[in-house]
Design a binder for these strands. Structure first.
Lengths: 133, 133
DNA sequence: CTGCATCCTCGGCGATACTG
DNA sequence: CAGTATCGCCGAGGATGCAG
């Protein structure tokens, strides 16, 4: 198959997210996914416990957070530290790799936040031009 | 409203993705979404036509690409240029804002691609440790 | 408090067909 | 080629309940 030999100017790497079957696409989705991005972002400040995290990531359900954390832990981006105390206490923190990912993610997040005025203006223009349809 | 006054250490901005109702969260999802990220990434190299784009973003359906492009255009990240020729020709290209977003996105994408060996190793370890369950 | 498992719904998304 | 409209599936994801 020449599928990985398409027309990707900047690629010498064995992994390519633009290829459907590449495993990197799955990881990218864990990272950029709805809850993945926010979870990594929240954890970048320091380790947090499950429910602390749940508060920080406003709107996430228990199930989704749990699921997200598992995926990130499996990918080696998050470290889970369970302490056998009572009541149980579990801390989640980024691995070094996770921190590097989170940095890039936060750069994007902050940029988007800082651009919202432009985005909102663009939307208005778009909606108005098209007659609100 | 005091909703934006929670406990966000690094925030002085009016927008905060960690807040459920903040419009920035929607935009972030357009940008980091499954097809949004790849579309912006592909467009960063230069303008592309609809079906060219479809080829570059391997696996995207016509409908999803169309939908994705509309969302990004509405947010002011992509510019659509239709030429009334026959056969019809439509070019998509990033706006300046779109380029800035794409840069950050690509930084993340490339990092993830470059880390896949580590990620895959971590997965193996995770799966093995847990007895493949 | 930290986690699973189960149920159920809603909408993302692909396939197909049609228009300009 | 560049889209839009419609249908239908399947899986993401929320609500609830139970265990350690």
């Amino acid at each position: 198959m020449t599928t990985t030999q398409e027309r990707t100017p900047e690629q010498d790497l064995p992994y390519n997210v633009f290829a459907k079957a590449c495993p990197s696409r799955g990881t990218l989705e864990h990272v950029t996914g709805r809850w993945g991005a926010l979870t990594l972002g929240a954890l970048h400040e320091g380790s947090l416990r499950f429910n602390e995290l749940r508060r920080r990531v406003d709107g996430v359900s228990e199930k989704m957070l749990s699921q997200t954390l598992h995926a990130l832990e499996r990918d080696g981006l998050v470290h889970r530290e369970a302490q056998p105390t009572n009541p149980p206490r579990v801390d989640y923190e980024l691995t070094p790799l996770g921190h590097q990912v989170a940095e890039r993610l936060l750069s994007l997040i902050h940029f988007v936040e800082g651009s919202m005025d432009d985005v909102l203006a663009a939307r208005e223009r778009y909606d108005t031009t098209r007659g609100g349809r």
